[in-house]
Design a binder for these strands. Structure first.
Lengths: 223, 223
DNA sequence: GCAAAAATTTAGTCATGGCTAAAAAACTGT
DNA sequence: ACAGTTTTTTAGCCATGACTAAATTTTTGC
C-alpha cells in the first residue's frame, strides 16, 4: 500500500494539472504551497514519486503524472468525494465540514467501504459540491462550466459546482442559499471589479450583492 | 493530537489489563505479541508512553495505565466499537469484516463523526460483538459473563458477547447462528477437553458439536 | 546581456516507529 | 544455589517525511 503522504501529493498534483489557474505547468512551489509544506519537502517527495514512476519530473520545470500516478490520484479523489457525499447525505454534515473529515477518512477506508457507500448513495456521479466523481475504472469528465463572475448583466444560470477550498466561504454560500441546482440571475455588475447584484431562486425571491471572490468560486451552467 | 501508534498501544494495554488471561500483569512480551511487533519496539514505545505520563512503567515488571492513559484508551475503544456497530447496522457488514475496518477508521474520525454515528445508532451501550461501549465520559462496565465452555451438561444460557479476535472463528459462529441474544443449551460434554454438544435457538431447532476453543470465545448469561 | 530577485535543489537535521543483535536481568529446575 | 533458559532492555540501524540554511538555476527588469 502507498502512504497517506503519497496519496495526498498525487491528489493535489492531479487537481493542479486540471485547474486552469497555472497554465498547465505544475511547479514545486505551487505544489508546496497547496500542500502547506516547505518547497524543499516538496522537492524530496517529487523525486520519490518520480522514482516510483508515478510522475515525470523535469528538475526546475515541473511535474506531470504518469498513467499509474493519475490512477492513484483518481482513486483517492473518488474516495474523497464519495465520503463527502455520504457525510452530507447520510450523516447530515453541512457543506463546510465535510472536506476536512474526508481528508482523513479517504486514506483509511477499504474497497469494501467504498463500494458500500457508493451503493448506499445510489451510485452518484457528482459530489457534494458538484465535483464529478471518478468511476471505479478511473473515468472522469470535466464539464466546462463558467464562473458566476464571468456572467454579464442580465444573464441567468444554474449553480452546478462550488469550490470546496474555503470552509468559511462555503458556510457563507450555504447561508445565502447559493446551493447546487439553484437558479441565479445577475441583475447588475459594478465596475472596477466591483460586486455583482444577484437574484437567487427560481422565483427570484432573494437579492444579494456578491463579491467577485465568491462569485469566482461558483460555477454555473447557462441556458 | 496523539499518534495512531500511541492510541493503538494504549488500547491494547487497556484490553490486556482487563482480560483475565494474564493475572493482571501486563508485560512487554505480551504487549509486543498482541501488537505484532518485536519486543524491543514495545520497550521503546512503553518508555515513551511513560514519559508522556500515560502509564506507569517498572522495567522488567510491566505497565499500568495512568488515569489519562486510560482515558485515551477508552476514547479509542469507544470509537472502535461505535464504528463497528455502524458498519454492521448501517452498511451491512458481516461480523468478521468490521474489526479490521474499524481498526483503521478509529484513528481518522472526529468528535463530530463519533457523535453523529452515536446518534444514528440510538446511543447504543453495547457493540456489534456484545462488548460494552464506553461513554463519552469514559465510563464502562465489565459484566461478568461466563464462558460457554464452563457450562455444565444440561445448562442453558443466552449469548451476550463473543471474542472479536479471529475473523474465521466469527464467520464460523455466524454460520452456526451463534449470535448475540441466541439461547443455547449444553446437552453433552465430552471428557478430556472434548467438544460440547449444543442445542441452538429458543426452539432448540439446531444441534451442533462445538470445540472448546470456540466455546471459550463465547460469553453467556445464565438464567 | 547582465545583475538582482525569485524559484528550486542540495545538504544536513530531526522525530516517529519499526528492526536486529547483543547485553543484562529474571526466572527455572535440580 | 547456581547454571541454563527466557524475558527484557540497550545499542545501533533504517525508512518516512517533515524542517532550515545554503547553493544553484531560472527568470526578470532595465
Amino acid at each position: 500500500m502507498l502512504t497517506q503522504a503519497i496519496e495526498d501529493y498525487l491528489k493535489t498534483i492531479y487537481k493542479l494539472q486540471h485547474s486552469d489557474e497555472h497554465g498547465g505547468r505544475v511547479t514545486t512551489s505551487v505544489i508546496a504551497s497547496r500542500m502547506e509544506v516547505a518547497a524543499a519537502s516538496a522537492t524530496n517527495m517529487i523525486k520519490k514519486l518520480a522514482e516510483l514512476n508515478l510522475l515525470m519530473y523535469t528538475p526546475y520545470h515541473g511535474v506531470e503524472l504518469t498513467a499509474s500516478g493519475e490512477k492513484i490520484a483518481l482513486e483517492t479523489i473518488r474516495h474523497h468525494r464519495l465520503i463527502e457525499l455520504y457525510l452530507s447525505q447520510a450523516l447530515g454534515y453541512s457543506w463546510d465540514q465535510i472536506d476536512a473529515e474526508a481528508d482523513r477518512l479517504e486514506h483509511a477506508i477499504s474497497e469494501e467501504f467504498e463500494d458500500r457507500i457508493d451503493e448506499a448513495l445510489g451510485y452518484p456521479t457528482v459530489g457534494a459540491h458538484g465535483e464529478p466523481i471518478p468511476t471505479k475504472q478511473g473515468q472522469i469528465d470535466h464539464p466546462n462550466y463558467r464562473r458566476l463572475s464571468e456572467l454579464q448583466d442580465g444573464q441567468s444560470a444554474i449553480i452546478r459546482r462550488v469550490s470546496d477550498r474555503n470552509p468559511q466561504m462555503l458556510r457563507y454560500m450555504e447561508n445565502l442559499q447559493l446551493l447546487l441546482g439553484t437558479r441565479v440571475e445577475v441583475t447588475a455588475k459594478a465596475p472596477f471589479n466591483g460586486p455583482l447584484q444577484l437574484k437567487i431562486g427560481a422565483a427570484k425571491e432573494k437579492e444579494v450583492s456578491l463579491g467577485l471572490e465568491v462569485a469566482g468560486s461558483i460555477f454555473v451552467e447557462t441556458d
